[in-house]
Simulated scan of single mutants.
Amino acid sequence: MRQCPDCKIILDDDVRHCPKCGRGLGANTPSTGHDISTLLTSANLHRIRSEWDKAIADATEALRLDPKNPDITSLIAGVYEERGMLDEALVWYQMALELKPDSDADKARMDAISAKIAAKRKAAGTDSFRVFEKRTKLWAAVLGSVFVIVVVLAMFSLFPHHKQAHPVRPIHPSSAHSSVNVYAMKSGSSEQAAPHLGMSDSGKSTSTASESGGSLRIPAEVYIRSEIANAQDVSETGASVDDVVVDPRIADVIVTFSVPIKGNITKDQILRAAVAISRKTFQINPEVKFVTARCVITTGGPKGVQIAFIGDIARVTLESLPANTTDQQAATYFTRVFWNPQIR
């Protein structure tokens, strides 16, 4: 930039004649660079043209000549503000106020820029938080779904089969006059029919019940007990069948058995006998849906006979297992299990 010596107007370096007074300007008559007013005028001209770097260069040169001039720092601050460099503009407005603390215009501009910077940073922080919140919700949903699946699988593995709260079909006939005896027991190649389990027409108990071991048992229960006791698989476990009770309401047979005490009785020993007894019970009568295995032990001490184990198993569970399933594996499918704490 150069200045006309007569008119004192600022012109570009490549202008050869002053448009106002017509004076010719040589190629080597640029501004001396030491006139602060000329530099500020040139800086403002570049500012109007959005020539930010040139405007800052002229203003910085003027500040070098007059470092205490608040108008120069205010001009530089304005250039940075219009350029969109708010942080730099804020610094220069602060410098202008240090040189001229009573400048209301610079203070107002500094406050406005401070508010813009704060709003910009808050918006950026809010956007970041929203992105983080969305990602957090997404991961929470994924982890929640995985947790639900794990819980369902865990419950299914722990309780693979449940005894039905209501029997699907009762074992006993629906009427005392029914001609179908669902407790017909097979003996050899012919069927041996057991009496009905209900009451006779006269309201008196049927006379086919027999007494065994001090307990009144019907022939069906006596028959099941005899068949289980004579089964080879049961005998191999060393178990003795002590009692059999039939619950026709839910097609359940409760078998009480004991195992010989030889040293310490283990859970595996009891479970092996319980599985063998359950298999044999289901084999004897296809109408039986559940078996409740009940193991008792005689301690010989002051407590006498104690319950060692109780567990339920369903026919559908036992028959659905693969053929190569071991007794130990089958034993894990007993439900509502009770163990005497003394059994290890």
Results as ranks from 00 to 15, higher is better:
residue 221 E to F: 03
residue 204 K to C: 08
residue 219 P to S: 07
residue 37 S to Y: 14
residue 280 K to G: 02
residue 204 K to W: 02
residue 42 S to C: 04
residue 305 V to C: 13
residue 123 A to D: 14
residue 186 K to S: 14
residue 135 R to A: 15
residue 18 C to R: 02
residue 195 P to R: 10
residue 304 G to A: 12
residue 343 I to C: 06
residue 158 L to N: 10
residue 100 K to E: 15
residue 124 A to C: 05
residue 307 I to R: 09
residue 170 P to M: 15
residue 16 R to N: 09
residue 76 I to K: 06
residue 234 V to S: 05
residue 210 S to F: 12
residue 314 A to F: 00
residue 193 A to F: 03
residue 66 D to K: 00
residue 200 S to C: 07
residue 284 I to S: 12
residue 64 R to S: 04
residue 186 K to D: 14
residue 130 R to A: 05
residue 250 I to N: 15
residue 118 A to G: 00
residue 189 S to I: 15
residue 257 F to T: 08
residue 87 D to W: 03
residue 239 A to V: 03
residue 244 V to A: 13
residue 318 L to I: 12
residue 282 F to S: 08
residue 19 P to I: 03
residue 220 A to N: 02
residue 65 L to R: 12
residue 298 T to F: 02
residue 271 L to Q: 11
residue 212 S to T: 07
residue 55 A to F: 02
residue 305 V to K: 11
residue 269 Q to I: 10
residue 262 K to L: 13
residue 326 T to H: 09
residue 103 S to Q: 08
residue 58 D to V: 02
residue 132 F to S: 12
residue 181 N to L: 15
residue 231 A to Q: 01
residue 195 P to S: 13
residue 223 Y to N: 02
residue 211 E to W: 07
residue 155 M to P: 00
residue 49 R to H: 12
residue 150 V to S: 13
residue 231 A to L: 09
residue 172 H to R: 13
residue 340 N to G: 04
residue 126 T to C: 07
residue 114 S to I: 10
residue 327 D to N: 14
residue 7 C to E: 01
residue 148 V to N: 07
residue 342 Q to N: 13
residue 244 V to T: 10
residue 25 L to D: 01
residue 220 A to R: 03
residue 311 G to E: 01
residue 236 E to W: 03
residue 247 D to R: 02
residue 27 A to T: 08
residue 341 P to I: 05
residue 291 V to W: 13
residue 211 E to K: 07
residue 146 V to L: 05
residue 10 I to F: 09
residue 232 Q to W: 03
residue 130 R to G: 04
residue 180 V to T: 09
residue 117 I to C: 10
residue 73 T to C: 10
residue 156 F to I: 12
residue 322 P to W: 01
residue 30 P to T: 09
residue 235 S to V: 13
residue 251 A to C: 08
residue 18 C to L: 00
residue 258 S to F: 04
residue 172 H to D: 15
residue 332 T to P: 00
residue 314 A to S: 13
residue 282 F to D: 06
residue 25 L to E: 04
residue 291 V to R: 12
residue 61 E to S: 06
residue 131 V to T: 06
residue 73 T to F: 00
residue 72 I to D: 01
residue 312 D to M: 06
residue 89 A to K: 04
residue 301 G to I: 13
residue 12 D to S: 10
residue 250 I to A: 11
residue 67 P to A: 12
residue 231 A to F: 08
residue 258 S to D: 02
